[in-house]
Amino acid sequence: MALHSAVKGKLISVIGDEDTCVGFLLGGVGEINKNRHPNFMVVDKNTAVSEIEDCFKRFIKRDDIDIILINQNIAEIIRHVVDSHNSPIPAILEIPSKDHPYDSSKDSILRRAKGMFNPDEMN
């Protein structure tokens, strides 16, 4: 398949619990840029919802980030913000965490896709 254009060197950002952030940063996705802005956020039980929301919105606005990985249980907390993001870039991927296995019924994109199979919608 012919690829028409390519943009190189974009970042993957992570919003997750300690193990998710330590793991993926160990995998090499972490970066501190010239403005001293990290591309990750460790969320613990003391993190305020507003902080998570602000961080998520900041990552969406950054043009050097193409994928946002977010633990599904954290995405649940800021579901209204996650659901309101419609553009393809950055792509938001809900990933499982240590204490919360992956549940496809909670996934924003899959829920939207499943919603299309509503019998009323098919007519």
Partner: peptide, 9 residues
């Protein structure tokens, strides 16, 4: 970042 992504269309 050691690991980055390339985006193509």
């Amino acid at each position: 970042a050691l690991t980055t992504i390339d985006l193509s269309i």
